[in-house]
């Protein structure tokens, strides 16, 4: 398949009514980022684009579709949504299938094998440093690097791909989608990242003294403004009512003067921030697919991926389980083995 081939196939599917809408990427005003394209019109699908700028995880929009409240008497359109998925995104779909949140017939997956996407923030800051024309329309980014189009057709290389590549993609172990209906282009070779390389950063942090660790994390967590960006962008945070962002409810009975407990208060202070992030890490244990969206959405740059990779490492080393690889197996924390390691249990 090619880019044009896949587009004409989507158009055919839309015309015949086999899919209800298409979620993909299109070129927007930001040259470092392809914005999400959500449409059911044939004309708009022609604008779709596939490249190294396909940063966002579109599986979130599939979940959002389920959350729309419908008028009384109307039923949800049960036709599938066509959605573009990279390797990491396809694993998120697998987790949702595993947890029976969506059915396989709800999505038509257009797999996009990728050799890594760029980090828009890094690319933008490098461009500011190195560009000469000061014209953001004259940028071309491909998997060879970032180029500036000078006079005529001459191109000046501004950065290598390694410099602008997203951190999560440097340690990605699944470059090809694990579940798909169609592929945009042929499968690519896996990068052959080893587990040691993947967990190197976590290992380095684990070696620090407890005081240093606490100093580092308390610095990071005290920055948090609790915007819930990480929760709102996460493809796996699908709960209708999030326990981490719940107001205290007044008791229903009028003579009861107590407030119903909320396990994590919404009030922004350091203690609640740490509790929020610990709870979120626990909720993502054995589920996080490391799509890196939380870290990209974070306005204060908390290294959330480091926290979730630590949990992922623990799960892998203790239970040999990797999230999102198979939609048929049970989630790791929803099952057990009588011979699980219990060296942490004392007495």
């Amino acid at each position: 398949m090619s880019k044009e081939g896949i587009k004409s196939e989507i158009i055919d599917l839309l015309k015949s009514g086999k899919i209800k809408s298409f979620v993909g990427y299109e070129k927007g005003t930001n040259p470092f980022f392809l914005r999400p394209l959500i449409t059911s019109s044939v004309e708009e699908v022609k604008k779709a684009d596939f490249s190294v700028l396909c940063v966002s995880n579109l599986v979130r929009y599939v979940i959002d579709d389920f959350k729309i409240a419908l008028p009384r008497g109307k039923t949800r359109d049960s036709r599938p949504i066509a959605v573009v998925v990279k390797g990491c995104d396809s694993r998120a779909v697998n987790v949702l299938l595993q947890e029976h949140i969506i059915k396989r017939s709800d999505v038509f997956l257009i797999g996009m094998p990728c050799n890594g996407v760029i980090d828009p923030k890094a690319a933008e800051s490098l461009w500011y440093e190195r560009n000469k024309t000061h014209d953001p329309t004259k940028i071309r980014i491909s998997n060879e690097g970032m180029f500036e189009i000078a006079d005529g057709k001459e191109e000046i290389k501004l950065a290598d791909f390694d410099e602008i590549e997203s951190e999560k993609c440097k340690v990605c172990m699944h470059n090809n989608p694990v579940i798909y209906d169609e592929l945009v282009w042929d499968k690519v070779d896996d990068k052959k990242v080893t587990r040691g390389e993947r967990y190197k950063k976590v290992d380095d942090y684990e070696k620090l003294d407890p005081e240093k660790k606490w100093l580092f994390w308390s610095d990071e967590f005290s920055k948090c403004i609790r915007c819930y960006g990480c929760k709102n962008i996460c493809p796996l945070c699908y709960c209708e009512e999030c326990t981490l962002a719940k107001d205290k409810e007044k008791a229903v009975l009028p003579n009861e003067k107590i407030w119903k407990t909320s396990w994590i208060d919404k009030e922004v202070n350091f203690s609640n921030n740490v509790a929020y992030h610990m709870n979120r890490a626990m909720h993502l244990a054995g589920r996080c697919v490391d799509c890196g969206e939380c870290e990209r959405a974070c306005p204060v740059d908390i290294p959330l991926r480091l926290l979730y990779t630590k949990v992922e490492k623990d799960i892998y080393e203790r239970y040999g389980y990797e999230s999102g690889m198979d939609s048929e197996v049970k989630p790791v924390l929803a099952t057990f083995d009588i011979n699980d390691k219990e060296e942490f249990i004392e007495g």
Binding site: Y205, M278, I315, L333, D340
Partner: peptide, 13 residues
């Protein structure tokens, strides 16, 4: 569940 929480507590210092 608690094997993961114990690791997390240690990791945060």
């Amino acid at each position: 569940r608690y094997s993961i929480l114990a690791g997390l507590i240690e990791f945060l210092g």
